[in-house]
């Protein structure tokens, strides 16, 4: 990981983001059930080697900023049973995130 001060981050804590709704060939760490969904950045983890390249014995560069994104369960699952305050969080790399309008 690289220290926060050394990396350029596209999104700040509190930003609303959409997970890109696209497919990826091969190894990918973005779950299907989150694609196209909107959440909120709750933490900037730092810069990490890119798993989609590491998986194929590449160096994993350029480094990718990793964020913790929080979703409302009721936004993910129509008819979610639990209270409206229930959430789900996942760690998502920057190139899977899009700004919301």
């Amino acid at each position: 990981m690289t220290a926060h001060s050394q990396i350029a981050t596209r999104f700040k804590v509190g930003a609303r983001v959409r997970i890109a709704d696209r497919s990826a060939l091969g190894h990918c760490r973005t779950p299907w059930y989150l694609r196209g969904r909107i959440g909120e950045i709750v933490e900037v983890h730092g810069a990490y080697h890119d798993p989609e390249r590491l998986a194929y014995h590449k160096p994993g560069l350029p480094l990718q900023v990793l964020y913790k994104v929080r979703f409302l369960q009721s936004d993910l699952w129509p008819g979610y049973h639990g209270p409206a305050t229930d959430h789900l969080e996942a760690d998502i790399y920057e190139y899977w995130l899009e700004p919301t309008l």
């Binding site: 760490r29 990490y48 990793l66 229930d86 969080e89 790399y93």
Partner: peptide, 12 residues
């Protein structure tokens, strides 16, 4: 009480 699921999708 809020239930919060953590999907450990990456390096953490």
């Amino acid at each position: 009480t809020e239930v919060r699921v953590h999907d450990s999708t990456a390096d953490l």
